[in-house]
């Protein structure tokens, strides 16, 4: 350790420092995308009301994927919803996080044997936090958000990096089960 003089920080250190500061802001003002895919979405309004007050944590609903940080996948995901979900996920601005709420996102839940519902969400998009329970209680959902914040703090919530790193794997899975993501229907040919 040749000199104890204050040494200039290298570029990576500066970026890492900035990233930590950015993480502080990102975890204290998580904006969730108001995209309620399944039945677990009914848990979110109570989270915003005075009993649990999601705003305390700095979380609030935002209308469009561009503005939101957290994508809440609440409940079962049919093929059609999954296609729209993937398109929305790709529209979100980086760094973005996904919270899978409800057992349907974990292992297909009660619809595990249906022809229309997928069984495991993280095959298709990277999921940071799962909240188990067939309709988990609001506390559990809030707990999930707190876990997400802890993950961000410990720099482990890098699902979006995984999506970039092994994109082909995700894409292959998506093509396998969905056929094609961007479909044409009779109204938008």
């Amino acid at each position: 350790m040749e000199s104890t003089k204050f040494s200039l920080l290298t570029k990576e250190e500066v970026d890492r420092k900035w990233w930590e500061i950015g993480d502080f802001f990102r975890r204290n003002s998580l904006w969730m995308l108001m995209y309620c895919t399944g039945c677990c979405a009914i848990e979110l309004p109570p989270a915003m009301t005075s009993a649990y007050d999601m705003e305390r944590l700095g979380m609030g609903p935002m209308a469009t994927p561009r503005q939101a940080d957290v994508l809440l996948v609440t409940g079962y995901l049919s093929l059609k919803t999954l296609r729209r979900l993937i398109y929305t996920y790709e529209q979100m601005s980086e760094p973005k996080y996904v919270v899978g709420i409800g057992s349907c996102t974990i292992n297909g839940g009660i619809y595990h044997d249906s022809h229309a519902v997928i069984n495991q969400l993280d095959q298709y998009i990277p999921v940071d936090v799962y909240v188990a329970g067939c309709m988990p209680n609001t506390e559990a959902v809030m707990n999930g958000f707190v876990d997400l914040m802890r993950l961000i703090k410990s720099k482990k919530a890098n699902g979006w990096k995984k999506y970039h790193k092994n994109n082909e794997w995700y894409k292959k899975n998506q093509i396998d089960s969905l056929g094609e993501v961007r479909v044409k229907d009779e109204f938008h040919d």
Partner: peptide
């Protein structure tokens, strides 16, 4: 064309 269209795929 890659805008927020509430999940619809619009091509025109």
């Amino acid at each position: 064309m890659d805008t927020y269209t509430a999940g619809n795929f619009v091509y025109t």
